[in-house]
Write a protein that binds this DNA or RNA. Structure first.
Length: 707
DNA sequence: ATAGCCTTGACC
DNA sequence: GGTCAAGGCTAT
């Protein structure tokens, strides 16, 4: 009754109001949305009373003012994102709530840095053990009091990967942990760097510990602001039999000083074996110089890195010995051959896991999909593969042999004498993008001379840097809100009527995900600044596209199947039985497109928000505000795709071109659903409410939900 | 399929 | 003629 009156007064769907109210009463996305699902089934008596009470109180407490009610509901959704993430159990990219709420600025800066590295306080403590830090506190990490016991770190590094792969090499390390260690060491070094940068003029050497120390951090800076400082981490690990860490993604992009500022600096971090003579063996084989400076392009060809340097680097794809400059970067012989075979034979590999396998010389055969993806991300160029297969001669693609050209450039040579560094963000692209004319060399010089600290804060002007726009990172941080940790029980499928059970299961999933979508949208950056009415209009406009896109993403590694959950997949044949074969085939096609485009998770989350932020929705009060947000997001996505996948042509445009098809699919899906709604579901649930609203607006030309 | 080695041919 | 980055060959 109250719900009905609320709707008549406000024109707001009671179901959406209820969904919003749930978020008010909840502290964890997963558990509470699961409870909401129970409420929609008559059997859920206990949950129903509980949720019902909260909903009623929420609404009755705010009916004094119509607009006030909506405002009250949505404004109170500003629960700390951090607590949601922490409860979601996500392993990485979480911001610690204690630090988010901390007034200690330095802690916030540190945490931001850790977050950007994909590690959290819990990671550091949980994965590595409290003993890794002399005093288990991130504050201590910030203070650089890092003491690593060799035995502890060895034990940690030698942990077997929790995988069902039985044929892992016994010496293979837990690559994820290795990455975490690398990240942590790098974070430590960066913190150290930030302080020691103030001591310009000579290298700063710091012994990290006075007892059983395993890590030294050496910072070099010659005081020249145009010269990129280096951080070298020396390790003393008592085991020379470790796997080779992939240099991929080890560039550091840390907030530089002000945690709230957009300013970012990329630091070069080198992991090197300790050369001091003692009983300890180096962490990595001694003839290699593990440069983690390469960022996106693996081993970028810069003025500071000629052929000799490139040959001394490990292969940026797998860490094996480099044999030469192949297809745009220095790689080993095997990755060269692999890239050639893959492109020439038009292979389309699919990762059986999450497309995030770490590639090294031991496991590179196991996942060709991730290996090829790494090849592309490291900068191997598709256009370097000759279509006519002619042998010999020189290639002419952009970037080919640029390392030799740089070696020839006298101006560059002179610059090298005064500066051994990688380009800072804000400088011109690395010479791998140069042609061999003198003009670009001159432009390089000009850029170096004109470089100032302000340019550092504009990383978008450096397409070669492994830069992830802050907006995309913020959006990515909200993904735990959409996690599938609380799916309905699978027993639903164990019925004599599997088709019906699957249909019912899908409806349940959609319902559950809709509630999560409301919460997710509300927490999106800048979305909260949009008026409540507009928020609702936007959500109503795109909910089905969002669900369709998430289905595609979930299915990107399962060709010929649409994965409605991690355990349930629909083939075209199944869909035929269920009566929506056409939709599934279209979904499979668009998923295949995304797969071929190598759409990654940042691009996926950006597309989701682009679906939501559509200023052309009819009835919006502040379309300009929404358009501004849209502009920022498209710019961020363009920056991301062009810097991370410069070899894939107009990936940005190709991704956007998939959106109309997504709309068609969602339209078809809604049409099918509305026609086949069982009578038992005719009056409950957000999904049905939205479907009915869409149907009304289609047939009556007005907004059925008037949300 | 992989990866090490070989052959080729334009460019210096 | 040397270099080097293509493609080819072939044992595994």
């Amino acid at each position: 009754m109250l719900k009905m009156s609320a709707r008549s007064e406000l024109g707001i769907s009671p179901v959406l109001l209820q969904a919003i109210a749930q978020t008010l009463s909840s502290h964890g996305a997963s558990r509470d949305t699961a409870t909401i699902t129970k409420e929609s089934t008559p059997q859920g008596e206990k949950s129903q009373s509980k949720i019902g009470k909260i909903s009623m109180e929420t609404m009755s407490g705010a009916t004094a003012s119509s607009s006030g009610l909506v405002s009250h509901l949505l404004q109170n959704l500003n629960e700390p994102v951090a607590s949601l993430m922490t409860q979601s159990g996500s392993l990485s990219r979480n911001l610690s709530p204690s630090l988010l709420h901390s007034s200690d600025k330095s802690s916030i800066i540190t945490q931001a840095g850790l977050s950007m590295l994909g590690i959290s306080e819990n990671d550091v403590r949980g994965s590595l053990g409290n003993n890794l830090l002399s005093n288990s506190s991130v504050k201590n990490l910030h203070q650089r009091s890092m003491v690593v016991s060799s035995d502890e770190l060895n034990n940690f590094l030698l942990k077997e990967e929790p995988s069902d792969d039985s044929d892992h090499s016994p010496t293979q390390t837990n690559s994820q942990n290795m990455n975490t260690v690398s990240s942590m060491l790098s974070a430590l070094a960066s913190q150290h760097m930030q302080e020691s940068l103030t001591k310009k003029g000579r290298p700063v050497v710091r012994q990290q510990s006075d007892h059983d120390a395993s890590v030294n951090v050496v910072t070099t800076s010659n005081g020249d602001s145009r010269t990129q400082p280096q951080i070298i981490i020396y390790s003393y690990i008592n085991n020379g039999n470790h796997d080779v860490p992939s240099p991929q993604g080890s560039d550091l992009v840390l907030n530089d000083g002000d945690g709230n500022s957009d300013a970012q600096t990329t630091y070069r971090v080198l992991l090197q074996p300790q050369e001091d003579g003692n009983d300890s063996k180096p962490m990595f084989s001694s003839d290699m110089n593990y440069s983690f400076s390469s960022g996106h392009h693996g081993v970028p060809i810069t003025d500071a890195q000629n052929t000799q340097d490139g040959m001394n680097q490990p292969c940026p794809v797998c860490g094996d010995k480099v044999s030469g400059y192949h297809y745009g970067i220095f790689t080993c012989e095997s990755c060269k051959g692999f890239f050639k075979r893959t492109v020439q034979n038009k292979k389309n590999f699919v990762c059986p896991k999450a497309s995030d396998c770490t590639i090294n010389s031991f496991n590179r055969k196991k996942c060709p999909a991730c290996r090829f993806k790494t090849c592309l991300q490291m900068g191997m160029k598709l256009e370097a593969i000759r279509q006519d297969r002619t042998r010999g001669g020189r290639s002419s693609y952009d970037g080919c042999a640029s390392h030799l050209k740089n070696r020839m450039a006298p101006l560059e040579k002179r610059m090298k004498k005064t500066s051994t560094r990688l380009p800072l963000p804000g400088e011109v692209p690395s010479p791998s993008h140069d042609s061999d004319d003198g003009f670009k060399t001159h432009k390089n010089l000009e850029a170096i001379l004109n470089h100032n600290s302000k340019q550092v804060s504009k990383p978008t002007s450096n397409p070669g840097a492994l830069y992830i726009p802050e907006l995309l990172r913020d959006i990515m941080n909200l993904e735990p809100l959409l996690s599938d940790d609380d799916l309905p029980p699978e027993s639903l499928m164990e019925t004599p009527f599997p088709e019906q059970a699957l249909y019912s299961y899908m409806m349940q999933l959609a319902e559950l995900r809709l509630y999560k979508l409301v919460r997710w949208a509300r927490n999106l950056p800048q979305f909260g600044a949009i008026s409540t009415d507009d928020q609702i209009l936007l959500l109503q406009n795109c909910w089905s596209e969002l669900i369709a896109l998430s289905l595609c993403w979930r299915s990107i590694d399962t060709p010929n199947q649409i994965s409605i959950s991690s355990t349930h997949h629909i083939t075209a044949e199944w869909a035929h039985h269920l009566g929506f074969e056409d939709v599934v085939i279209r979904l499979l096609n668009i998923t295949e497109n995304f797969r071929k485009l190598y759409m990654d998770q940042f691009e996926y989350v950006a597309l989701k928000v682009l679906l939501l932020i559509t200023p052309d929705v009819k009835g919006l009060k502040e379309p300009k505000k929404i358009r501004d947000f849209q502009d920022k997001l498209t710019e961020a996505l363009l920056t991301y795709t062009s810097s991370h996948y410069p070899h894939l042509g107009d990936k940005f445009g190709a991704l956007l071109l998939r959106l109309p098809e997504l709309s068609r699919i969602s339209f078809m899906s809604k049409d099918i659903l509305i026609k086949s709604l069982p009578s038992s579901m005719a009056s409950c649930g957000l999904l049905v409410e939205l479907l009915k609203g869409d149907n009304k607006s289609d047939s009556e030309g007005s907004s059925g939900l008037r949300l």
